[in-house]
Nucleic acid binder design. Structure first.
Lengths: 225, 225
DNA sequence: AGAATAGTGTCTGTCAGACAGTATCGC
DNA sequence: GCGATACTGTCTGACAGACACTATTCT
């Protein structure tokens, strides 16, 4: 007896993926994990997993739970990018992935590795060293595009910064995201305008360094990117 | 024997909702349908429905299929806004809704009604006359916000216009979306800049009216909002 | 001519880009 | 003083807001 076509349709897989960005050295990096299970076992992919309605209060919660299994530190600021869906993007069948992005402070990028099964690494966000599983190459590209648009529109990626930072460091972070250099004078002039000065707090502290000390700033509590 | 708690978790409902906008009179309207089934029977809501993996090639496809059941004309330009999810937003249990918005040309707003069960109406997009079912009030507000941000950033909502339109009509459409009046000179000066003039085609035709005839324009084929 | 709508010109303030200049540290 | 980095000043061009102005139709 032939299968009823309707019976061959499984309920769609519902997953979340996260593009977790950080600044390492001079470049923007994204967290990749090496898959330990089929499908696409051994390939590198964005951290992701399936929704568990009994554990998660929302899709964003699911993303946070999955991130906690990969890295030690909490990443409080997750933002939804968009969804990816269709019958062919996962060999197991019709699937939905909701993509989020998140930013990890520079001083926490070594606090990773909370996972004994999968290898984890930071890779170039704009051009990963190897192809990614599923449609994750496209997902990463989309997340990066959203990130760049926000910075172009003068949003400050303060969540990538350590607690205390100089304006030069902040400018270098923006440059790493945009992939181009910015004019120092223009950058600092913008920060003095009302909208931005509310996000930045002058700590009156100075960086101890070899040259002229720079003023240290911190993000306003509750700052949202 | 007590239920296994895990068995009480049903698979999440996966649905799509659409905020379909049009211009009627001087205002921005959104399409609402009166629900004919539980939950929230008889309440007004955004057009929406459940994903059918055997029929839909993607979530956007699902949204198009659902719209076709409500209105006659095809609405080709659907854009994803974001998702809404959680255990409490639908009384049937854990649910996900992916929200899309779409724009209906002004000369097609009377080609609606493809549905014998549900009542359909255009309501004020910014302030619907009655509360909406589920979290659709919040969904509509979010979609409207995205629409306004795009127009503020000088995107042209050409998909709301009839095939041929004058610049004054286009300006009135933008004003209806933003909820504020715009300066005619500024508006037209922007349109002459390179980026916009590629989207607008001067047809060399004139509107037949009671006063000075206005130049008629049409959208460049393939224009995307 | 006058009403009504289409379309243009101009003044001004704001801000971005470019780039030169000044300030403050260690050696 | 000199190198290095932090930080500021200034010129210019692009563009937005405001508003007055001209142009073309109908009655």
């Amino acid at each position: 007896m032939p299968l009823n076509p309707k019976k061959t349709i499984l309920y769609p897989l519902i997953g979340v993926d996260v593009a977790l960005f950080c600044i390492e050295g001079q470049g923007l990096k994204a967290l990749l994990v090496q898959r330990s299970q089929e499908p696409h076992s051994a390939q590198w992919a964005l951290p992701g997993g399936l929704l568990k309605p009994d554990l998660d209060a929302s899709l964003e919660d699911a993303a946070k739970r999955i991130l906690r299994n990969k890295i030690v530190v909490d990443v409080p600021h997750l933002k939804e990018v968009c969804t990816f869906s269709g019958p062919n993007r996962d060999p197991r069948g019709w699937s939905i992935s909701v993509l989020f992005y998140a930013l990890l402070p520079r001083d926490q990028i070594n606090a990773l590795i909370n996972n004994k099964v999968e290898a984890v690494k930071w890779d170039d966000a704009a051009e990963p060293a190897q192809p990614l599983a599923f449609d994750h190459q496209q997902q990463l590209q989309t997340a990066l595009q959203i990130l760049r648009e926000k910075v172009e529109l003068h949003n400050l990626p303060l969540h990538l910064m350590p607690t205390l930072f100089t304006l030069t460091q902040l400018q270098q972070t923006c440059e790493a995201i945009l992939g181009r250099s910015l004019d120092k004078s223009v950058f600092r002039r913008r920060l003095k305008q009302e909208a931005h000065s509310r996000s930045l707090i002058d700590t009156n502290q100075k960086e101890t360094g070899l040259q002229r000390p720079a003023t240290l700033y911190r993000a306003r509590p509750g700052f949202d990117f």
